[in-house]
Design a protein around this nucleic acid. Structure first.
Lengths: 260, 260
DNA sequence: GTAACCTTGTTACGATGCTTAACGAAACTC
DNA sequence: GAGTTTCGTTAAGCATCGTAACAAGGTTAC
């Protein structure tokens, strides 16, 4: 560690060893994911991974201190996967097309969950005791990042003047208080939004915040049921129709435009 | 088995042995559940249960052929638990109070999930391969029973003439087709409804069916996030307000009354 | 009452998995 | 080329699942 030979000359890149190590770590995670995919569970067996890599199980402990640590790494990766999948889908739509972006974002959320039910389960399933430890935990972090992508669309709508008050009977006092008291509110800010945060707070009234959460919950509910096959009796086409209706109704209730 | 001594006289009750056996099975399941509760996971360890019962692990195989079979039994029990919890809450409200019943039903769903996250996870979490085997699987069965409780309220509303068309932009053709082609539709009928099924089909138009599913999905989404702690940053009161708004908006969109 | 049988639970065993400790080999640094 | 770090191995301890063989009790039949 003290003798890093990469930082001296014009080669700030990682050492050969570091590259090998990174590659091995990546391979471990990849095979672990692949095994999860094949077994259909979120289990991870060191022995199995090692076998598949042509190694012995204890060797893996050079890279992960325990099975739990590998799982944590996989969870963190899942965050990134979901985040980028949703963000990419959103940015693939024209900038002003709020409805298109909302729909694309939601669809990406749904498709990722269906494509990677294990990773989805890692993030949004029952929290495994021990993963909340590091600083507020990656669990809530995932929720915030997913929320952040949604929020980006809402903020964009507000900036374009296309955000109308949501269809709510009024916001409960307790909700406003809860929102304001949540100092973790800052974490909710999406990275894309570097502007003045008070402006954001103004753009997103408590009512809109609530509507946004309700939109997210509704979307998440459909996605969960969809990804785990609880809606399969409907058939693919009907599920697609139900999804579209869910997003449409959610947008309408939240005060977002529902058509280009 | 061939020598059942309980069926002859006025004692059709189970044999002493059968009672003992049933009690042991109940104890195993109870301790298993208790251990799940304490560990915070859906794991079940035979050795641990046996130890806690003052037995040795192989003894449990007299009652459950494998760990999987115990898990399956626990899943089935979870169905009943959730079903009765929701039904009881519903029937505790006055018969004509549709809004009260809907709210009570939804709250029972939420509270059960929060109180028993492990059982909730067993039912609605990622399906474990192997549990879908027995006759369409208990997984979809759970969804249907939960749906059934909701549907009962919708049917009651229809019979009382208090069900108006839902706020939908029209129902997709694919959805109608999917609903009609789902012959498992029959299973969706709640036990409480013994009347003519065609009447039910008339009362619940495809649009209402879709609205009902959307209501359920929205509720399920909130409940999932709530039960797994993803909304804890809001605080209890705000979560309560959000829940109430979710049910209210869902009812309004579905064409159900939102006030007594 | 006694003999046969069934039920239940035990110990013994083998396979698999996680994890640590001790060791050897290769790579990298100087 | 010598010393250090990294990597991966073998050996071993411990826990688990699940099977097999066996012992002890209750139950049934005669």
């Amino acid at each position: 560690m003290s003798t890093e030979s990469g930082t001296e000359a014009g080669t700030p890149g990682p050492t050969r060893r570091e590259r090998n190590r990174a590659a091995t770590i990546a391979e471990i995670k990849e095979i672990g994911l692949q095994r999860m995919h094949e077994s259909g569970t979120t289990d991870v067996r060191f022995a199995e991974i090692a076998r598949e890599m042509g190694m012995t199980a204890p060797g893996l402990y050079r890279y992960f201190a325990s099975r739990e640590e590998l799982l944590t790494a996989l969870i963190v990766d899942a965050f990134d996967d979901l985040g980028t999948a949703v963000a990419d889908a959103r940015e693939a739509q024209p900038e002003g097309d709020l409805w298109g972006r909302l729909l694309a974002t939601s669809a990406a959320y749904r498709d990722w969950a269906r494509r990677e039910p294990q990773q989805f389960s890692l993030i949004f399933g029952m929290p495994v005791p021990g993963y909340r430890a590091p600083d507020e935990g990656p669990t809530t972090e995932a929720a915030k990042r997913a929320m952040g992508q949604l929020q980006t669309t809402f903020i964009e709508a507000a900036r374009l003047g296309k955000l109308v008050p949501p269809l709510l009977d009024g916001v409960d006092e307790a909700f406003v208080k809860g929102i304001n008291e949540a100092h973790k509110f800052d974490h909710l800010m999406p990275d894309a939004w570097d502007g003045d945060r008070t402006e954001v707070a103004e753009a997103l009234t408590p009512a809109t915040m609530q509507a946004m959460l309700m939109f997210w919950a509704a979307l998440h509910g459909f996605v969960t049921l969809h990804a785990y096959g609880h809606l399969e009796w409907l058939g693919e086409a009907a599920q697609e129709a139900l999804f579209r209706s869910t997003v449409e109704q959610g947008a309408r209730c939240a005060g977002l435009p529902t058509a280009p």
